[in-house]
Amino acid sequence: MRREAILNAAIAIALLAVPLAAQAMGEPFVITLATKVAILALAGVGLNIALGLGGMVSLGHAAFFGIGGYAMAVLAAPVQAYEPLMTWPVEVAGTKSMPIIWLAATLAGGLAALAIGALSLRTSGVYFIMITLAFGQMLYYFAISWPAYGGEDGLSIYVRNGFPGLNTLEPLQFFALCYGVLMVALLFSRVLARSRFGLALAGARQNPLRSAALGIRPYSVKLTAFVISGAITGLAGALFADLNRFVSPAMLSWQTSGEIMVFVILGGVARLFGPVAGAALFILLEHWLGGFSEYWKLFLGLALLGIVLFARGGLIGTIAGREVAHD
């Protein structure tokens, strides 16, 4: 555990130090990459609550990620078109304010997770994987065929949304914001794992029968965790849409679900900083392999295969030891 704590601190400091150094050297692109890592890691932190703590192998988290992104677009698009968001029954204006958008994205992600989770958690194991995947695809096809927000082409939000007191158009300030959100989510995730709820969730994962006998309904505990997980991933989706100033159905595609899962597993399932390490490694690989081959995903696939087959426990597991702390 000590080694893992030191490693976590090192990762947190490195993720902060790299963009600061990039700023000093005048490399804004590196800041954008680091921002991407922080946002994708946040999506992974969300999935890790379902996957690592709750043992729910969801291959449909792109649904929540995309819903968060579209929540941003739905709120911000009317502002750039100088139209109200809705006129009936009361007139509501859109907004470019990040706190409101974040709240909406978190709620939307959570609500979607409630609906999808309530149905999917009736099953378990491989059924659960396939069903979450199928619900994700359902939303993907809906986004493609619904023309109001750009359909297949997606929708551009030309100016990044604002946060009180910050200039979000400045890459480093936007990074700091995303980094802050990631740290809060990590702290929340750690507190959650050690709370009574976290222990009940671990019980429901390890032995649902015993946990039911102790008076804890595994279904309710897991559904609650799934909703929290979807809400955090939804928030990450809103930030990701703000980073790109663009939403499209690609955010909802099942490849996105696969990638979020890859971050978590690459870093180490159920490790607090697993998603951060995984997302950082993924983006590094993407950037580095993409530099010398157009077919970098081939090598990414081979690397992933090697990691699954021979380096179990992910990056953090390999460096800090296999044992996962039980406290």
Binding site: V126, I129, L298, V308, L309
Partner: peptide, 29 residues
Amino acid sequence: VIRRLYARDHLDQVLATFALILVFSEGTR
């Protein structure tokens, strides 16, 4: 590949076969 996955949990199977998709797709491209 697949032979090594039978004894693993579904999570490893999903990740390894996801990696296989990348290998097949990019190899074909």
